[in-house]
């Protein structure tokens, strides 16, 4: 505690050591600091090992894998597995389709989220309380798998690509995050724009959106990651292999299932086994986009989560 608190207040001073403090630390305190750092290092290792392992396996020859020689570094380095994945036209098509889907979903979701959050920040809007409650309630009560499935069937959305876009296009949690941010924009800005004769849409586009770019970026990334990682909606509603998103495809590959088998039953069938290296490469492909956006993601998400937690 001592260390971190004092460094926090001293952040601006140009001390050579980031943790230098006015209080001279006892040897005991230093030892405890060291132990804590070791525990954290261990955590980092535990977090990264599975990913390093799969990376190594995806770049090793199948012989090395079978001979149990691959630990955390590629053995008999080869691009073989990646070439196999590329050769599987259905996999690369699924990657492209999911990327497209992710972009469309993110755009639709952002529009919906803004359209929902913004009007609800007007305190004098009649019916606001009722609408608010009705929206929050859906966080706690949902119809359930089967009633939703029947709805999709009745709406003729089964096996329709729209089913991967529409039912999840507005997250209440994200909407609350955005609304909380909108609340933090000074009321006086809106009032002076109103006096200048601006209508709500102009105020939204000219004032609110430009001021909340960081939150909008966070939410867009949340939606994008959510769509990229989405699995159960595809499993339930999408049996056309052509429109199978990447997670469904990956599920079939790692469990040695062909597309039809997933649709029909869930036992492990005797489909031709994908090699371990190919599975590793497929997992790498599906993970890569997440790793690519992660640096941006983690720049913003903490603020998003804490806002949502306070208001939700």
């Amino acid at each position: 505690m001592t260390g971190s608190n004092i460094t926090d207040t001293d952040r601006k001073s140009d001390s050579p050591e980031p943790f230098a403090s006015r209080v001279v630390k006892s040897r005991h305190t230093k030892r405890v600091d060291f132990i804590i750092a070791c525990v954290c290092l261990l955590l980092i290792i535990v977090c990264l090992t599975p990913m390093l392992n799969i990376f190594a396996r995806s770049l090793s020859s199948s012989q090395a894998l079978i001979n149990r020689r691959v630990f955390l570094w590629p053995v008999d380095f080869t691009w073989e597995s990646y070439q196999f994945v590329f050769k599987d036209a259905s996999f690369s098509r699924s990657m492209i389709w999911t990327a497209f889907l992710t972009v469309v979903c993110t755009i639709v979701s952002m529009i919906m989220t803004v359209l929902c959050a913004y009007p609800l920040t007007y305190g004098n809007l009649k019916g606001r309380q009722v609408i608010n409650t009705a929206i929050i309630l859906t966080m706690y009560f949902s119809a359930g798998t089967i009633p939703n499935y029947i709805l999709m069937r009745d709406l003729k959305l089964l096996n329709n690509p729209l089913v991967l876009i529409l039912p999840g296009c507005l997250s209440v949690f994200n909407m609350i995050v955005l609304r909380s941010f909108f609340y933090s924009i000074p009321e006086s800005l809106r009032e002076s724009a109103e006096l200048d004769g601006a209508n709500p849409l102009v105020i939204l586009v000219r004032i609110f959106l430009p001021l909340s770019t960081s939150v909008l970026a966070t939410l867009a990334l949340f939606y994008a990651v959510g769509r990229w990682n989405g699995f159960s909606d595809a499993l339930l509603y999408m049996t056309t292999p052509k429109y199978a998103p990447i997670q469904l495809k990956l599920y079939q590959i790692i469990n040695n299932l062909s597309a039809i088998e997933t649709a029909q039953n869930e036992g492990i069938a005797a489909a031709p086994m994908a090699s371990e290296g190919l599975k590793a490469a497929s997992v790498m492909f599906a993970t890569l986009p997440i790793l690519l956006v992660y640096p941006w993601l983690q720049k913003y998400f903490i603020a998003g989560v804490t806002i949502g937690a306070v208001k939700g």
């Binding site: 599975p50 990913m51 799969i54 990229w228 989405g230 997670q247 790692i254 997992v283 599906a286």
Partner: peptide, 8 residues
Amino acid sequence: SWIIISGL
């Protein structure tokens, strides 16, 4: 995703 984690 849990699919990726199960793959790992």
